[in-house]
């Protein structure tokens, strides 16, 4: 039997799109963990070291410049893109959820994107844009917004 691999591959890709996507009216939970930006060899080999970094005016400005597009100016998950996404951006003022996510998980979500921690792909990876210290300070800022901690 001759297998048309090209057709098979196209079929698989279509199936994957039907099952998972970030746009409107589509399922948000991936059945199979899809690829992220990192190569297999680049997947974080160890947990990043947590540093006692403080929230500064730069942190707040960084949040306003990048994060607020989706998460809103006050972090309530109501940024201008929010209503166009199937998976609503996280409300950073809700302690109920954020106290279930560790600082490491928040750091990884920012650095490697939502998919890297099993969350929505709508959240892109910021690791090529923001320095690690900036990401650490954003984690602290999210903790300030939710008024909660989780280690």
């Amino acid at each position: 039997m001759i297998i048309n691999y090209k057709l098979l591959l196209t079929g698989i890709v279509y199936l994957a799109i039907l099952v998972t996507a970030c746009g409107q009216n589509e399922q948000a939970t991936p059945a199979v963990k899809p690829p992220t930006q990192q190569k297999a060899g680049e997947v974080i080999p160890q947990m990043p070291q947590l540093k006692p970094i403080q929230v500064t005016e730069d942190t707040r400005q960084t949040y306003q410049w990048y994060c607020s597009q989706c998460h809103g100016v006050k972090g309530k998950g109501d940024g201008i893109n929010a209503k166009f996404l199937t998976v609503p951006p996280r409300n950073h003022t809700k302690a109920e959820y954020l106290e279930t996510r560790t600082d490491e998980q928040l750091f990884e979500a920012i650095k490697f994107g939502g998919l890297s921690v099993g969350r929505a792909p709508c959240m892109p990876a910021w690791g090529q844009t923001l320095a690690e210290d900036t990401i650490h300070s954003l984690v602290r800022y999210i903790r300030e917004l939710c008024d909660c901690e989780a280690f």
Binding site: A16, C22, G23, N81, F84, L85, G113, C122, P124
Partner: peptide
């Protein structure tokens, strides 16, 4: 698929899906 999932472009950019519908952030 990568535009939507791997890189998350659709969160901020409107584009067309394969069915020709406009979707995405603004």
């Amino acid at each position: 698929y990568q535009f939507e999932r791997t890189f998350g472009c659709i969160s901020c950019h409107q584009s067309l899906n394969l069915a020709g519908k406009v979707r995405g952030g603004i």
